[in-house]
Design a protein around this nucleic acid. Structure first.
Length: 345
RNA sequence: GGGGGCACGCCGGAGCUGGAGAGCCGGGCCAGACUGUAAAUCUGGUGCGUCAGCUGAAUAGGUUCGAAUCCUAUUGCCCUCA
């Protein structure tokens, strides 16, 4: 579906909706499960539980993204991937099997398959071979997962991951293979790695047309507020991304009126709230001028306030998306929101 | 009062046995980037200009083909002795 044009909102409508948008901090990294239509499906499947009194699920990634992001420090083989630590040079071996074991130990409600996230651009042959490897690793992940049990008093869920770079035939083949594994939910990886947004949307659209509509679809690594709304329209139920937190630390704030670079001189004497419409009391309390001062002073509090702003905004945004899905006017709402969200303030 | 040292651009530092520089390093400042997090990170810019150039190393002289650099005086600051 072309960006910003009307279309049908796909499978998300078919899901019943859960109450709370979920976010959980795991091992120092923040994972955000923004939109949860469909999470009830997970609960029905026995995949979502309370963990040690926490009322939010834990999601752990497998290290597949590090195969991509730490490409200078690793070697890929059929058996698995050897990483060299940037801290002490020690080597660490990740395999589909030990990654399942690790995620069992952590106790994540949602465990991710071990895959290779291909870079962009990517040669066709490389993407094809890599996809084959990811599929073989997936079978090994499933075998290990199915042969083991959770270490705690609840079940865990394994999400397989579609790859295939930006090649439609590979994406189709991968989506079909992933769907055939018949897991409670499915993930789409290998996108938002530098390709144009339009290409990301095309691949998402294609894959969503193949992954079953009655199971949550999780688009890994996406994205900007606009990306999220566009991909919800394509049928995505779950997202995670570093953008709200990393960009907050770097002074970029997302608000319902647009994007603010709080470092900019224009906010020096602006004593209006960081985001007067924010559901987050912190963002309504502190002023732009003060937040800018904190950031310029390298006060860690500036990063904290920015992070609260962005996370609360993202959660608000998907909460609104869910409301409008329920009310049946998601697309018109989305098309009205997108220009605002893109605006630089 | 004696002795010693220092002085440039928003700030600090270095360069100073003569071969300039609108230069170097760091900071600040002004912008930009960031998409399944190694990274509170990275990148660019930061005298004036009508884009030809112009001004410029505390101030004023001197030596020299040539001075940020050497000499003299002045001003200001720092250290030290009394």
């Amino acid at each position: 579906m072309p960006v910003g044009t009307a279309g049908t909102v796909k499978a998300v409508h078919q899901h019943e909706l859960v109450n709370d948008v979920q976010a959980q901090i795991i091992l120092g990294n923040t994972y955000h499960l923004y939109l949860r239509p469909g999470m009830d499906i997970l609960q029905q499947a026995g995949g979502l539980h309370r963990f040690n009194g926490w009322d939010r699920p834990i999601l752990t990634d497998s290290g597949g993204y590090q195969v991509y992001s730490l490409s200078n420090n690793r070697k890929i083989k059929e058996e698995g991937v050897t990483f060299q630590s940037h801290i002490d040079g020690a080597s660490h071996f990740f395999s589909p099997e030990n990654v399942m074991d690790i995620q069992r130990i952590i106790g994540a409600d949602i465990m991710m398959a071990f895959d290779e996230c291909t870079p962009y651009p990517c040669a066709y042959d490389y993407a094809k071979n890599s996809m084959g490897l990811t599929h073989r690793w997936l079978e090994r992940c499933c075998n290990r997962f199915d042969a083991t049990q959770g270490l705690y008093e609840y079940e865990q869920t394994l999400f397989p991951i579609v790859q295939g770079s930006t090649f439609p035939d590979l994406r189709q083949a991968s989506a079909e293979f992933i769907a055939s594994m018949d897991r409670p939910a499915n993930a789409i990886g290998g996108l938002s790695v530098g390709e144009p947004a339009e290409e990301m949307y095309q691949m998402t659209d294609l894959v969503c047309s193949i992954l079953p509509a009655d199971k949550p679809r999780y688009l890994m690594g996406v994205g900007t507020p606009v990306n999220i709304l566009e991909c919800i329209a394509l049928g995505i139920d779950m997202f995670d991304c570093v953008m709200p937190t990393r960009n907050a630390r770097h002074g970029m704030l997302y608000t319902s009126k647009g994007i603010v670079n709080i470092r900019n001189a224009k906010w020096k004497d602006d004593f209006s709230p960081v985001d007067e419409d924010s559901p987050c009391a912190t963002s309504r309390f502190y002023t732009k001028a003060y937040l800018r001062h904190l950031v310029h002073s390298s006060e860690i509090l500036g990063m904290q306030i920015g992070t609260l702003q962005n996370l609360s905004f993202y959660l608000w945004l998907v909460g609104e998306a869910r409301k409008h899905i329920i009310e049946g006017d998601f697309l018109s709402w989305k098309n009205q929101m997108v220009p605002q969200l893109e605006q630089r303030l």
